[in-house]
């Protein structure tokens, strides 16, 4: 289902209480289309985050009750369905939008088990820009073969959006031969599955495993769906790396994203260092925010431009 960016914001705003939702929907469509996040902080007005930064929306004072209500609506009055996500600091809502959570943590030893009081929420609108990957995609092929690729950028710079469009192109054979893509979508942000159908376009030959840790999803996809490409958003744990190594050993090409700004960032973090040392990725895509917008730089595993 194709939705405009303004319509995506409207969809995300369904978790807001009626008074706040009305204020958001009353904004002009062009302005709504530019909004990337809605920021709700206790005792302050709601802020709209666009390319220029955060601007307050006057007359939208956020109370503790508002924050609780948003979480209740986001979980459809079923906290038990999102508790695992709450422990990770976010909840994915229908449409693939992400509700980031911040508040007073309830700890069990060293483990965060819940949030007692919520102090801030960040509603990030899932964005889909068909064609975004067209500039990058040709550089990911070598001798008629897709190279395993890692997308690298700071948070909020568009890793997931680029990954989604790359998957869409590969799985539909747009600008390249079609490939069977297995997507381990732990947080449900890439495909936003609902009733077995992806709400965001991930192409014709994409099989999605969601609602489970990435490593478990990747292993299940490898065993059951025989993917030619395995895609995963945000490598964060050693288990993810192990699962990717196993997949690479089976001849499957990899598409993944990670937090970082430069190649040097990969070297600084032990998890990513091991990824690069094992030569898992032959291509790196760096996303940089510039005044003119986002810039994509593709290099090989050694950092040489492609």
């Amino acid at each position: 289902m194709e939705l405009s960016q303004a319509a995506r914001l409207d969809q995300a705003a369904e978790v807001l209480p009626a008074a706040l939702r009305r204020r958001v929907l009353a904004l002009p469509a062009a302005e709504r289309a530019r909004i990337e996040e809605l920021r709700l902080r206790g005792g302050r007005p709601m802020f709209l985050l666009g390319p220029e930064g955060e601007t307050p929306l006057p007359g939208t004072e956020i109370t503790a009750q508002t924050l609780e209500t948003v979480l209740e609506m986001a979980s459809r009055s079923s906290v038990h369905t999102v508790l695992d996500q709450v422990r990770n600091g976010f909840v994915t809502i229908p449409g693939g939008h992400r509700l980031g959570l911040c508040g007073t943590a309830v700890m069990d030893g060293k483990t965060l088990v819940n949030l007692r009081g919520i102090s801030s929420l960040c509603l990030r609108v899932a964005r889909q820009f068909p064609g975004l990957a067209s500039e990058v995609l040709p550089k990911l092929w070598q001798d008629g073969r897709l190279e395993s690729t890692l997308i690298l950028s700071p948070p909020g710079a568009g890793k997931t959006t680029l990954l989604r469009d790359l998957i869409r192109c590969l799985a539909s054979g747009l600008g390249c031969p079609p490939l069977r893509v297995g997507l381990a979508d732990e947080r449900g942000e890439v495909a936003a599955m609902a009733g077995g159908v992806p709400m965001l376009d991930v192409g014709q030959r994409c099989d999605v495993m969601d609602g489970c840790p990435k490593a478990v999803g990747m292993a299940a996809l490898l065993r059951g769906m025989d993917p030619q490409v395995l895609a995963v958003d945000e490598i964060t744990a050693p288990e993810d790396v192990q699962a990717m190594l196993q997949a690479a050993g089976c001849g499957v090409r990899l598409l993944a994203t990670a937090h970082g700004e430069t190649l040097a960032d990969l070297d600084r973090r032990p998890l990513y260092r091991s990824l690069m040392a094992d030569g898992l990725f032959d291509r790196l895509v760096l996303i940089q925010q510039t005044d003119a917008g986002r810039r994509y730089t593709v290099t090989d595993g050694e950092g040489r431009p492609c």
């Binding site: 979980s75 459809r76 009055s77 079923s78 038990h80 369905t81």
Partner: peptide, 10 residues
């Protein structure tokens, strides 16, 4: 159902 499936209440 809550124990085994954890389905949403609606």
């Amino acid at each position: 159902e809550l124990t085994f499936r954890r389905s949403p209440l609606p």
